[in-house]
Design a protein around this nucleic acid. Structure first.
Length: 982
RNA sequence: GGAGCGGUUGGGCAUUUGGUUAAGCCCAGCGGACUUAUAAUCCGCUGUUCCCCUGACCGGGACUUGAGGGUUCAACUCCCUCCCGCUCCGCCA
């Protein structure tokens, strides 16, 4: 009777496809999550659990997502999902930053000239549409790569609720006395008569005149103190003052020489700046002495026409601080020029000395603040100079250059002039050169002491400035990587007062009324509260409708007692808005903790969101809004350079999701060490897809395909009754699980990736699975040996599907649906918890690790390697083909022998050979091992392909071995495999 | 200017809290087994130079973690100097 032996083998069987078809299947899984309201159901499930809040930093809603977004969101998703599975209630509310200049510019472009005729309200409406369009697009894209969160109710900075909290936060600063209005230089377009932000400035080549101008020293050189702290300026006895000596003996006037490309700023010149620590020289020319930087002395002397001048004194720039100079053309009574030091001076061009016009440069302005220089701006919105000498008064700044150069000549102050081509800021819209111009802006002071009613960690703060308090708060936060603390501390230490006003339309207005009488801003808490209420109802647009006009009625100006007010037009810096995000979130989510547990954003946010969130929260709430801050690196291309769309080296995560799968993007994110800059490329995505296939097929598909007849409730074998190798692999899985769970806590996702990959490839696929195939396929379906192997596979599958769910969210949910049904299981893997040791081992009484067993298997695996090698040689000599054709003879001495003896029944399976004999060798204690390979004894069993000397002993089945014959008898007896107890 | 990262075998990614022989995985390459995970799976080889051995292979030994120093009984790991590559933030009179 020809028996179809193959049909009696328990071959793997599964509907879980090898090919994932992720681009097609992921959208279906997403639809299922949506239908079942997965996010909400997790929230319901977690109600009452300890909270863990990762607060989302809002991306800017002005384009499709790029790989940096994907990295950011996937990392957050890993954190949130793993926290949920670790037992926390970890919500995730995504947010969007919707106001601000980039959108307004884009909309301006779209509107073209039309904008000029439009009311602000209508422009705002257009901007809103634009932002909403990209919010919607990004939302779809984030979901596409598997990010799970409250996407149906995200936060957005352009909702009435959000806008009202922003305004309330501003008022809090305002009422607490941190806000002031003051002058500050900004980019200014004379043609469009408007302030420009940095993003609105384009650099174009421009030809400027450059002038070398001498400023005569007014101070008596003998009063100048020359410090010699470190001996760097030795060569002069400490008691003498070289400059004074020179002056006295030579009786020549002393000048310094400045260099500038903007002669028109000279009327606003208030100071000359020297670098404090660079070396300066006094050059003696024919009729004067000139002070310039030593490093530039030679080129200056040549250009200015005294090439033979000799250096008669050396001193650091610091020596010139607090000296006085005459202005080159303004009389002494009208303008006194102060000698100052500034460390931003460079020694590569010019003279090493610059003139300082506080109203026409950011650095100049900062220097001006330090030395209390006059910041008055005599240039009006159209760029016309006022209050000047007749030679240039009433001229536009660029037109004033030539007359001023002439004036310098007449006064004998001009030493040299030429034309130079350089990159100069231009207006993005009209392409005319822009200038720096000091205008009135709103500021939050970094130096204002906090009112006594506020406290910081319970300690009185009356004496601490806002800056100091911020620095103190920074210390309370766990910065990861740790250098972040130093970085943000440096920034807070050195940052100027926060300029929070913008002369723009698309944002939250600085909703303040100004007195018509004296111009003083009205700061009336009652009025402020009324405005917030209107904003909360109708949004910030209400500042531009009539809805808020009457709110100051009845108020009185604190300055002049006036009762008529006008509305301010400036809007708030968008960083102020996004900095309020956690204030907004905690205002609406009552059960949210303060501070949040984690902020996670790129390193560019130290200056941005990390800083503004810190300052806003400090002002409104008295402390930082985060306990921890994690910073991923930047995304680089394969050459290790910043990804660039123009260079074509950018990787589009949505494109990857559509071609390879969102899961591949996620797995890539998990594969990189995100704390450093990360490399992404098509190549790496392809490789990640390979890893994905390994995990999908070698792990999940293999597990599922061997559980088709396994019902855990009936068939699971207790740990004690598993075979040694099953116990071993489960204990390995247990160790893996502990590592993985710990690494989730540390956000060390790349370690999880590596470790899981290793487990799947090396421990499972290349070893365990190979070893148990004989049992799985050839043993009777319900035999204890087969059920034991199935139990191990099942427990591994149950463990890994949970452990990987935060990362491989799609696939794990797919696997979840295919695992044997058990009653306690939720509808999605994302509702489950991480496995415990008990879950994996199936027993609470089994130790997580068995040192004896572990060391035995370490030994056995190393012996396995030593056996595989001679098997390969035998194969090369055509002695055997498959390893089952072999018989292995081991001669070992202790301690190896002891290990082998303990596991002698397992050896043939571990080596996958038909027979193993073991002999004790000489050399006790040396652990020597000899391996001999020969052809297996007996004949090949047609069923299980092992070789046996007992093939054919059962006359009914002449071609099978002693293991297979009873199985066949049983099967043929029609025993239901499910109830058989072979 | 401020902050920071990286340099491991043909390519990519790991590991190394200073200590047994540093190298595991993937890819590419070469060779093989199996056709019972089958549009799969598994196994072996694959750093350099030099030395010993040999007819040749095989085998054995030494060397090797950007360069050079230092600390140490011991350095891939810690420190210093440097080279190369890169990033973010700021500045450019």
């Amino acid at each position: 009777m020809p028996l179809d032996l193959k049909s009696t083998i328990n071959l793997p069987k599964t509907a879980f496809p090898m090919k994932a078809n992720l681009p097609q299947n992921e959208p279906k899984i997403l639809a299922r999550w949506e239908d079942m309201r997965l996010y909400d159901r997790i929230r319901e499930l977690k109600a009452g659990a300890p909270a863990y809040v990762l607060h989302d930093g809002p991306p800017y809603a002005n384009g499709p997502i790029h790989l940096g977004h994907a990295l950011n969101k996937c990392l957050k998703d890993f954190v949130v999902k793993s926290k949920n599975m670790a037992g926390f209630d970890a919500p995730y509310i995504p947010g969007w930053d919707c106001h601000g200049l980039p959108i307004e510019i884009k909309v301006d472009h779209q509107l073209g000239g039309k904008k000029l005729q439009m009311k602000p309200l209508d422009v705002r409406l257009e901007c809103r549409k634009y932002a909403q369009k990209y919010l919607d697009l990004q939302r779809v894209q984030f979901k596409r790569i598997g990010v799970l969160g409250r996407f149906d109710k995200p936060y957005s900075t352009m909702t009435p609720e959000y806008e009202s909290v922003v305004l309330a936060t501003f008022y809090k600063f305002f009422e607490d006395g941190f806000v002031y209005k003051g002058l500050r230089p900004v980019y200014w377009c004379m043609h469009d008569r408007t302030a420009l932000a940095e993003a609105e400035v384009e650099y174009e080549t421009h030809t400027s005149p450059t002038v070398f101008v001498r400023y005569r020293m007014q101070s008596d050189p003998r009063t100048i103190e020359i410090p010699r702290p470190s001996g760097a300026w030795t060569g002069h006895p400490p008691e003498t003052n070289p400059l004074a000596d020179v002056r006295i003996t030579k009786n020549k006037p002393v000048y310094t020489i400045i260099w500038t490309t903007t002669p028109w700023t000279l009327p606003a010149s208030m100071a000359v700046a020297f670098h404090p620590s660079e070396e300066y020289v006094a050059l003696e020319a024919q009729d004067a002495i000139y002070i310039v930087a030593e490093k530039l002395a030679k080129s200056v002397a040549e250009k200015c026409g005294f090439p033979d001048a000799t250096a008669i004194a050396h001193f650091p720039g610091k020596a010139m601080e607090h000296t006085w100079f005459y202005h080159p053309f303004l009389p002494w009574e009208r303008r006194k020029i102060l000698g100052v030091v500034a460390d931003y001076l460079t020694m590569d061009t010019g003279t090493g000395v610059v003139h300082t016009a506080p109203s026409h440069g950011a650095e100049d302005f900062a220097t001006g603040v330090r030395y209390q220089l006059d910041p008055t701006c005599d240039v009006d919105a159209a760029g016309i100079i006022h209050n000047g000498l007749p030679e240039y008064d009433g001229l536009k700044v660029l037109k004033a250059n030539e007359p001023i150069i002439e004036l310098l000549k007449t006064r004998g102050a001009l030493l040299h002039s030429e034309k130079v081509e350089h990159q100069y800021p231009h207006c993005w819209r009209c392409h005319n050169p822009v200038i720096f111009r000091a205008t009135e802006q709103w500021f939050i002071s970094m130096e204002t002491k906090s009112p006594p009613k506020q406290s910081l960690h319970g300690a009185p703060t009356a004496e601490m400035s806002f800056r100091t308090r911020a620095l103190e708060e920074i210390k309370q936060v766990k910065w990861d990587p740790a250098w972040g603390e130093e970085r943000i501390s440096n920034m807070v230490e050195t940052r100027p007062d926060w300029c929070i006003s913008r002369q723009r339309v698309w944002g939250v207005p600085i909703a303040v009324f100004a007195c018509n009488g004296c111009g003083k801003p009205l700061n009336d808490p009652a009025v402020n509260r009324r405005v917030v209420e209107v904003f909360a109802k109708s949004g910030a647009d209400s500042w531009y409708t009539g809805a808020t006009d009457a709110l100051a009625v009845g108020a009185q100006c604190a300055g002049c007692g006036g009762t008529v007010f006008a509305k301010e037009n400036d809007i708030l810096d968008v960083w102020f808005e996004s900095g309020c995000s956690y204030l907004v979130e905690t205002a609406s989510e009552q059960n949210y903790p303060w501070p949040s547990d984690l902020y996670l954003e790129g390193g560019d946010q130290y200056r941005g969101w990390f800083m503004s969130s810190l300052l806003c929260s400090l002002g409104a709430h008295g402390s930082a809004p985060y306990k921890g801050v994690v910073t991923p690196g930047w995304t680089l291309d394969e050459q290790g350079r910043a990804m660039s769309k123009s260079r074509g080296t950018d990787v589009d995560p949505v494109d990857i999701a559509n071609r390879l799968g969102g899961e591949i993007v996620r797995l890539w994110v998990a594969s990189v060490d995100f704390r450093e800059d990360v490399v992404g490329s098509e190549n790496l995505m392809q490789r990640t897809a390979e890893t994905y296939r390994d995990i999908r097929n070698k792990l999940f598909r293999y597990v599922l395909s061997n559980l088709y007849d396994f019902d855990p409730a009936r068939h699971a074998v207790p740990f004690e009754k598993l075979q040694a190798v099953d116990q071993y692999i489960l204990q390995q899985a247990c160790a893996l699980s502990a590592d993985v769970i710990r690494w989730y806590e540390e956000f060390a996702f790349h370690k999880i990736y590596q470790r899981v990959n290793h487990f799947v490839i090396v421990e499972l696929s290349a070893f365990y699975v190979d070893v148990i195939k004989d049992r799985l396929y050839t043993f009777a379906p319900d035999s204890p040996g087969r059920r034991a192997a199935q139990t191990a596979l099942w427990r591994i599958g149950e463990a890994l599907v949970r452990l990987l769910a935060p990362i491989m969210s799609f696939t794990c949910d797919e696997v979840w649906q295919n695992l044997p049904k058990i009653e306690t299981r939720g509808a999605s893997v994302h509702m489950a918890k991480f496995p415990t040791a008990e879950d994996i081992l199936g027993s609470a009484s089994v130790p997580k690790e068995d040192p004896q067993q572990k060391s035995d298997w370490t030994t056995l695996l190393s012996i396995r390697d030593q056996v595989l090698k001679p098997l390969e040689e035998a194969r090369a000599q055509n002695q055997i083909g498959k390893s089952l054709e072999a018989r292995v003879k081991l001669t070992a001495s202790d301690p190896l022998y002891g290990v082998l003896e303990r596991h002698k029944d397992d050896l043939r399976y571990v080596f996958i050979v038909s027979q193993v004999t073991l002999e004790k060798g000489s050399g006790n204690g040396t652990g020597s091992l000899q391996v001999e390979v020969s052809r297996a004894d007996g004949e090949k069993c047609e069923r299980c392909w092992n070789y046996s000397t007992h093939v054919g002993e059962d006359p009914k089945y002449p071609t099978v071995c002693e293991r297979c014959a009873p199985v066949l008898r049983q099967l043929e007896a029609g025993n239901d495999p499910e109830t058989s107890n072979n």
